[in-house]
């Protein structure tokens, strides 16, 4: 296992970089979409809530592999040529947006209604209330589930290897088929995934520790 790591570390690191770039772009784009969806889910209007709910239901209720295949094969059908890596980021983004919207929705529901009433009384617009009052608190409240979601996306990014994106998983497959040492190679890849995820989990625990205090609900 360590021999594989030593002999193939340039390719493995390149694969890992792609894994990180794809996952983190999806997380960042999904965050924007997820926040908007969470606003949609908590909207006063049923006409806004309903489609957002349907979106969330579909993307949370079907396997991400199936979503990836659907995006990758469907877009060319309707005349949109798309590179595998773009399809990968798009699918992971659309998927994580649904999961993140649910995390944010739950966070928003934890903000005391009094704060929002007070903001309205003070003549602060709905949009400003969201931006300045609700969301800063929501981000702090939802840090632990958000970290879990980042880890989930990092792990799920392994399946974009099926559409030939050369991330860590794909690179490992290539090394395994060249060296005829699948066990050692996949163990090495597992170790890399594990290391990244452990670092993420620790980082989040540290941030959470630092940011507690001054929370709306406490």
């Amino acid at each position: 296992m360590f021999e594989i790591l030593l002999n193939h570390y340039p390719v493995l690191l390149k694969g890992l970089t792609t894994t990180l770039v794809v996952s983190l772009s999806a997380i960042a784009l999904g965050l924007v979409l997820g926040v908007l969806l969470a606003f949609g889910l908590t909207s006063r209007y049923r006409l806004v809530r309903w489609p957002c709910g349907l979106y969330r239901s579909f993307w949370r209720g079907t396997p991400i592999l199936l979503q990836l295949l659907l995006v990758y094969y469907l877009l060319p059908e309707i005349g949109i040529e798309i590179a595998p890596i773009t399809a990968a980021i798009l699918t992971l983004t659309l998927n994580t947006a649904a999961f993140q919207s649910e995390i944010f929705r739950s966070g928003i529901s934890h903000i005391p209604a009094g704060q929002i009433e007070a903001a309205r009384m003070a003549g602060i617009s709905a949009w400003q209330t969201r931006r300045r009052i609700i969301m800063p608190q929501v981000f702090r409240l939802t840090l632990p589930p958000l970290t879990n979601e980042i880890i989930t996306i990092l792990k799920n990014s392994s399946l974009i290897s099926v559409i030939a994106v050369t991330e860590l998983m794909r690179v490992s497959e290539q090394i395994a088929s060249r060296t005829f040492q699948p066990l050692e190679t996949y163990l090495a890849a597992a170790l890399l995934y594990l290391a990244v995820n452990l670092v993420l989990a620790r980082l989040s625990a540290y941030l959470e520790h630092r940011m507690t205090g001054g929370l709306a609900t406490e």
Binding site: I151, K155, N156, S158, L159, S161, M169, S172, E173, A176, P182, L183, E184, Y186, L187, A189, A190, Y193, L194, N197, L198
Partner: peptide, 15 residues
């Protein structure tokens, strides 16, 4: 929690 299920499946099936 830290490794993808796909890696585990590959370890079992190919490794």
């Amino acid at each position: 929690r830290g490794i993808p299920l796909l890696i585990l499946l590959f370890l079992l099936y190919y490794g």
